[in-house]
């Protein structure tokens, strides 16, 4: 199965976002590189607003991801509560 992935600039906010991905996607593979962090998940990667908010200790709007994103792979679907990347095959 193909990996969906997302990469962020490494900073204090994305630390919580990555932790949230790990919590909600048991197959997540985290790859740290200079200045950035990339997370791969086979098939489908989901970021949940509630999990990020809990880990950050404040309300989080998923559109704030815009500020930290580096790259994505997969078809995107975004709602108020979930940001999902997936491959059909």
């Amino acid at each position: 199965m193909s990996n969906a992935f997302i990469a962020f600039q490494k900073n204090d906010e994305t630390r919580s976002i990555v932790e949230a991905i790990i919590a909600d996607n048991p197959n997540a593979i985290v790859n740290e590189q200079p200045g950035m962090v990339k997370v791969d998940v086979p098939g489908r990667l989901t970021i949940k607003r509630q999990t990020v908010s809990d880990l950050m200790g404040r309300d989080f709007d998923l559109q704030e991801l815009q500020i930290h994103l580096i790259t994505i792979s997969g078809h995107l679907d975004e709602t108020d509560d979930e940001f999902t990347l997936s491959w059909n095959s």
């Binding site: 600039q9 200079p34 200045g35 950035m36 815009q66 580096i70 790259t71």
Partner: peptide
């Protein structure tokens, strides 16, 4: 952007790293 800007970060070039990542944050869109 990913290997080159990560490379800039690795080589102490905060200027290129910053504009690179800032530009890259638009790329997902």
């Amino acid at each position: 952007f990913v290997p080159f800007i990560s490379g800039a970060a690795y080589n102490g070039d905060m200027a290129a790293m910053t504009f690179g990542f800032s530009a890259q944050s638009d790329e997902a869109r």
